[in-house]
Each structure stands twice: as C-alpha cells, then as structure tokens.
C-alpha cells in the first residue's frame, strides 16, 4: 500500500450471473480525495460495480484495489478503508441512531472511547447529534438517509461509496446530503457516488464515468465529457395540430439521440441543421421556436449512449 496509489483501481473487473454478464470488464481509476460519479440508467451495472468494490459481490474476473490493497488478497485491510452506504435504508429502525452506529462501528473493530468519538463525529457530519437517542423509525425519510450515510462513515473510511443516496428524499434533505458529500470531499475523503441524476453529478463530482449496459463508455470531468462528445444541442418547439406534432416528434426521434417533453424536442445534431428541419417540417409539424444552447452532461450522455437517461431508466 502506498499513499500514491489511487483510492480505487479496477482492472478488467466483471460479473456474470449465469450466462448474462451484468458487468463486462471494467477498467477504472478513482483518485484520492476526489468525488467520483458512476452515472448510468437503472440496470446499467452501477450497483453491481460498487458492490464488487465494497467486497459484497465477488467479481467473476479482474482485480480490485482499495488504496493500493488488493481486495482479494488482503480483503480485511482493504475493506477497513472503505465505507458503504447502500441504496436501501440499511438500518435497524427500532434502534436509535446511537445504537445503530454502535453496531456498525463495532463491525469495524471500534470500541470504547474511540467508538464513542467516531459516532459523535459521524452524527455531527450528518447533523443528527441532537436526535441521536431517538429510534430511527421516528425520523423523517431524509433523516434516515442521513443516518444511512453516518453508518458508512462511523469508522472514518478513506473511501466512501454512496449508492444513489438521494433516492426518495425531499429537496431540503437532498441539499443536506449534497452539503455532507462536499464536506467529506473537502476533508479528504474519496467519495464514489452512483446516480442516474445528471444534475447531482454536475453539482458534486470532480469526475464521472458513464456506465451503460455493464460497460464504462466514457470517463473524465464533466467539462471534458461535454467537450469531447458534443458541442451544442438544439431545442426545437413544435407547433400545429396534435397529430402533426406527434409525427414531428417521431421524425426527430428517428434522426438522432433525442429527448422530448410535450411538444419540445432536444437534439444533439448528427447531420446538417437544414436537413433536420426539412425532415421535421416534412411531417406537417410546424417549428414554432428553435434555439441552440451550450451542451450539458445530459447532451453528452445522449451523444454517447444514443438514449436519454430517463428513457433508459
């Protein structure tokens, strides 16, 4: 183990379930102290990948290192450096926050004053110290999510893996979780964050890997991905009668990676703009408004995968 080693390194890591490969053969490096997102639709292989990283699922192939420690050869030392926050609320709701954290801390060999101190730290980070003695079942959904994070933090891991931590939370709790993630990253913790929300990646993460159908199809900073894979996207608002709008939307979908809401279609053009407009107008739809805007991560995802994230999920 060296301090220079990446926080997480995957070499050819894959997982098969029977004849189906849930994850192909992933190569990935996550640097120390960064917030790294694994972005992909549901079923893309995000949870399987991080489950392999956390030692919960045994890979069918490949090698995983946590802070330079081989997860297969030195599993206990490697796992001790990593904290997992599962997507589910992996808590005992009848127990208080304090009791939950005491249990999860003890799994990492913590006891006595050290454990008490780490519990206080974790509760401070997630802002639950004043409610620590209440049973978790009395918490709001957002508070339970925060306690779920605290349970992954209590042993002060160098790498924290968060599997879709904002599922089902209200905006206020989501902001609290964002603040927690930023504070952890600022304190030097490596954060691995899986999500299918683009805006979370753009708001939080230094680098991102896009995973689709069990393979990493691109990785880099949000800026790099956008710059590499698209320059701009066109937003077209269609008019006319409903049948014409529907026909126009169908034509637009057939001509590239598109996303549509009501009568508005967003396209990362793969052909000349005039050709695109002519084809849409040929269906009888009227182009009521057209605008070009700077590409976003969402546009890059469209360009890379050929489908919108929400369509895939």
């Amino acid at each position: 183990m060296t301090d220079a080693a990446p926080a997480v390194r995957l070499r050819g890591v894959g997982k098969d379930y029977g004849a189906r490969a849930a994850v192909g053969a992933i190569d990935l490096e996550i640097r120390r102290g960064e917030c790294f997102a694994l972005l992909g639709p549901n079923g893309a292989g995000k949870t399987t990948t991080i489950s392999m990283v956390a030692g919960v699922v045994t890979p069918s192939r490949g090698q995983i290192e946590i802070c330079g420690l081989d997860l297969q050869r030195d599993p206990y030392a490697a796992k001790a450096r990593l904290g997992l926050v599962p997507q589910e609320l992996a808590l005992y709701e009848e127990l208080s926050a304090l009791q939950n954290l005491t249990y999860f801390g003890a799994l990492y060999g913590l006891a006595g004053a050290t454990l008490a101190q780490r519990i206080d730290e974790a509760l401070d980070i997630v802002g639950l110290r004043d409610r620590a003695r209440e049973p978790a079942k009395r918490y709001s959904g957002g508070m339970k999510r925060r306690l779920n994070i605290a349970a992954g933090l209590v042993h002060r891991p160098e790498v924290l893996v968060l599997d879709e931590p904002t599922v089902g939370v209200d905006p206020q709790s989501r902001n609290h979780i964002f603040a927690t993630v930023r504070a952890l990253r600022d304190a030097g913790t490596t954060v691995v964050y899986t999500t299918h929300h683009m805006e979370e990646v753009e708001a939080l993460c230094d680098r991102v890997a896009i995973i689709d159908a069990g393979a990493i199809i691109a990785s880099g900073t949000v800026g790099e991905l956008v710059a590499q894979h698209t320059t701009h996207e066109i937003v077209i608002e269609l008019g006319g009668d409903p049948q014409a709008i529907a026909a126009g939307l169908r034509e637009a979908c057939a001509r590239g990676a598109t996303q549509h809401e009501s009568s508005t279609v967003r396209i990362v053009p793969t052909e000349g703009l005039a050709t695109l407009i002519g084809a849409i107008e040929g269906t009888g739809a009227v182009i009521a408004r057209i605008a070009s805007r700077d590409a976003t991560l969402e546009a890059a995802f469209l360009a890379l995968t050929g489908h919108a994230l929400r369509d895939a999920s």
Binding site: K79, G83, P86, A90, L107, G109, A151
Partner: peptide, 12 residues
C-alpha cells in the same frame, strides 16, 4: 434492508 450488504462490506 441492505444491512446484510453492510455486514459483508465490513472487514470480517
């Protein structure tokens, strides 16, 4: 609940 995954992720 995922508590079992947490146990498997622990160094035991």
């Amino acid at each position: 609940t995922g508590a079992w995954r947490r146990l498997l992720a622990a160094p035991v």
